[in-house]
Design a protein around this nucleic acid. Structure first.
Lengths: 350, 350
DNA sequence: GTCGTCGATGTAATCGATTCCACGAGGAGG
DNA sequence: CCTCCTCGTGGAATCGATTACATCGACGAC
């Protein structure tokens, strides 16, 4: 592959002049410029980004470490991050942690070794020494979705409390009283917060959240299935199960189906994180929707600010409730001609 | 950040010795080795991958350009690619083309500029000059899922012909005769092949595939919706719609619902590419499942072979049909406890 | 006419690693 | 005792860019 030297000799100038032309430096004669550009064209020359990065100490690359690529929420986040980054002249390298702290550290380490300009992380745990150290060492960093408390790093996330209150109001209005939650890992902020928001919302209706109705999941489908089975084995199973992410909702649905239970007649189901497929599941699933793409964009802007030496602001955007049929209430506008005979009927499950 | 020089002076040796220790070169004294390792530890030293790559001309990075991150098929592919690559000591940089040739070229160019060791591509079109040139210039390259004919590059893909034959047999057995397909872009191999396989399978049953029953989609949900609406407006709409990927199936489902049609009673639906949610859609969707993770692994192995100077073999794995209820046949084993009263009841929704 | 300024250009240092080559010490073999 | 290897080590070149500094010619001001 042609190097800057080849271009220089082909154009009859020095490498300095070639570099000036390529970087838009003003003091280059028109003649030299055209000769250089012609040589570049002729040789199909492309600057070696590796060499350039070594010299300038900037890679124009952002690292994004997400918790799980198979989760549509993160995939949408990744897409908006890449889009915004591209608009700002950066590339994005994605690392998938698969909800495993060791894999997360592997990717963080690899990205730091590659000297990325900044790091966007949705931590899978309470904070690895590696990440804390990187933050302290001054690596430009921004947390997105999840964060690590006590670290001085901007956080871009969504606040689901209002939406969870709306959800509980909705469930309460439908007559449900025994509400359970499939929680995410306690090591994650979103794992804790969603339980907390749910508990507070229940309290506002004088409802309790007993320990038996808090199932410990790990944001993966299999844990949703396992926890749901536990709920169903209780002497008094919950009337509605609220999954703290969409994959655990999928697992919950698997478990309910395996037992031949109907949703919402036998057990209601709701999820945190909305995805397109929820419209077409049987039944359509009521969910708390985050403004995912906005989060991604805001996170990139905050990170690029940090890279540029500016402070980089934390952002919190509200989530909203999307009511569908999985908790009992029909969504009439989607099925305008549905007769009363088809409305959900409450029946015993055991 | 500490450099190799800092380590050298801290350990009282030359940079050459530090480099030898770090790279496991045999001729280093035990004494020097321990001093170097101690200094590395103390300074938290990590080799600068950028500098190393410049010198060695190897980045230990693979580029993966996929057609659409929002498509669960590609996301699963990306995951298995990263996993296998990591096992072989490589990192993966993903570029999302969003089914746009210009974006695809942008990512290919960026990856080449970064001097990735090899490129894994699922081309969105018939072959950009850029990619053809890169292949000709000797960049180690492997096509996965889709490919560009006439280029001497290994292809790792899945053959859906047998599964499509099984699908048509299934549909024919259910009494369906008017079968339509939502095709992918004609510029992609998968776009063409799936239509071709469908047509051949139909021919085996003496069925025709009229032009009116071939809708031109672009592998995105919106096109599935649009094409399906066109089908429904025909004087004689098809009995079953076969979507050439899962996103177009989603769009088709949207369109069918918007018209108040029932699946499969009014119109059947099948899809190429199976995803977990298809089990829980209303109704569960019959699909052709690719061995996605195997494809990803095989592609990485082929690419790493190429990088190592070995030939790198093309691989074709068979897809298989997964029958669910969306074309008319119930899958009883999935709902073992369902009583007759709870069986799907045929009712009008409109 | 001389001097200072400015624009265009080239030379060379530099980034942080790897690696070729030379060199000295020490041991084996004659 | 001398020669020849081998081993451990350091010096310096190198990868491909950017950029500080020096140089040189032309031109305007005095």
């Amino acid at each position: 592959m042609a190097s800057i030297k080849d271009v220089a000799s082909a154009a009859g100038v020095s490498v300095a002049t070639v570099s000036r032309v390529l970087n838009g430096h003003p003091s280059v004669s028109a003649d030299a410029r055209t000769r250089v550009l012609a040589a570049v064209e002729r040789l199909d020359y492309r600057p070696n980004a590796v060499a350039r990065s070594l010299r300038t100490d900037r890679t124009r690359t952002l690292g994004l470490v997400i918790s799980d690529v198979l989760n549509p929420y993160f995939t949408e986040l990744a897409r908006s991050v890449e889009e915004e980054a591209r608009a700002l002249g950066y590339s994005v390298v994605i690392g998938n942690a698969d909800e495993r702290p060791d894999l997360q550290d592997h990717h963080v380490q690899t990205l730091l070794d590659r000297r990325i300009d900044g790091l966007l992380v949705s931590p899978t745990d309470g904070g690895s020494p590696l990440m804390l150290e990187a933050a302290r060492a001054g690596t430009p960093m921004v947390f997105v979705d999840r964060w690590i408390p006590g670290v001085d790093v901007p956080v871009v996330r969504s606040d689901g409390r209002a939406a969870v209150r709306d959800l509980v109001a909705h469930l309460h209005g439908l007559g449900h009283r025994r509400l359970a939650i499939i929680a995410g890992p306690a090591a994650t902020t979103t794992g804790r917060e969603r339980v907390q928001a749910f508990r507070e919302a229940l309290a506002a209706y004088g409802l309790d959240l007993p320990d038996a109705y808090i199932g410990q999941g790990d944001f993966q489908a299999e844990s949703g299935r396992r926890v749901t089975e536990g709920f169903l084995d209780l002497p008094e199973p919950p009337e509605v199960v609220f999954a703290a992410d969409n994959l655990m909702a999928l697992g919950a649905l698997d478990a309910l189906r395996a037992r031949g239970l109907r949703v919402p007649e036998d057990v209601g189901l709701a999820a945190f994180d909305d995805i397109r497929w929820f419209v077409h599941t049987d039944p359509p699933i009521t969910a708390v929707a985050q403004p995912t793409a906005d989060l991604g964009r805001a996170a990139v802007r905050a990170l690029v600010d940090r890279i540029g030496g500016r402070p980089g602001e934390s952002v919190t955007l509200p989530a909203r409730l999307v009511v569908r049929r999985s908790c009992g209430e029909p969504a009439p506008e989607r099925f305008p001609h549905r007769s009363p005979a088809q409305s959900p009927v409450r029946r015993s499950t055991s």
